[in-house]
Amino acid sequence: MKPEPRLVEVRRNVLKHNDLVARELRARFQREGIAVVSLVSSPGSGKTRFLESTLSRMNSRYRVAALVGDLATENDAVRLARSGAPVKQIVTGTVCHLDASMIRSSLEEWHLADVDYLFIENVGNLVCPASYDLGEDVRAVLMSVTEGEDKPLKYPAIFNGADVAVITKMDLCEAAEFDLESARANIQAVRPGLRVLCVSAKTGEGMEEWMEYIESLTPAQK
């Protein structure tokens, strides 16, 4: 006769390994005095262009570096490297998000003590990156005015887990008939109190406020 199955308690976190690596990275970033900012959004929301503008603005005053994740191609790294900052592409292949181990191994050849700010552009995806801590200080979630105001309601996990929201491509606001107030209300519904910045990497609108926000991360979190 077959024995009756019995239940044994286990209680183990499935992403424990990632969480441990992220914790180790966070401690290392703190030790080396680096502020780390990651960017998440759906594909094409303007992460790379926003980062290009950010790096160019910061490059003369700070030592900035960037990691960029994509399923394929090194195009985004080539674009970002034009700013003069050290940039490394992480090609994830079939993996739809960055994880902490990928960050750790791509930092191996870098001397972190020489960096003030590290930016990490995640793979364009509003679902999977929500599960993976990368050891960053700040996670910025971007949404562009051409994507509709209800993105936060469709992807509450990623908006809830963010530290700042950035509405991009504001120069297209009118053409896209984007309702900014409704977008703000949706963000607040899924993450009360979340700071919202409105920018256009094209015209430079809002970039000063973003710079102030970034600069406020040091030395407090540094």
Binding site: P3, L7, E9, R11, R12, N13, V14
Partner: peptide, 11 residues
Amino acid sequence: RELQVTALEVE
């Protein structure tokens, strides 16, 4: 935010 294996049914 849980993503946790809580128990196993074994024999």
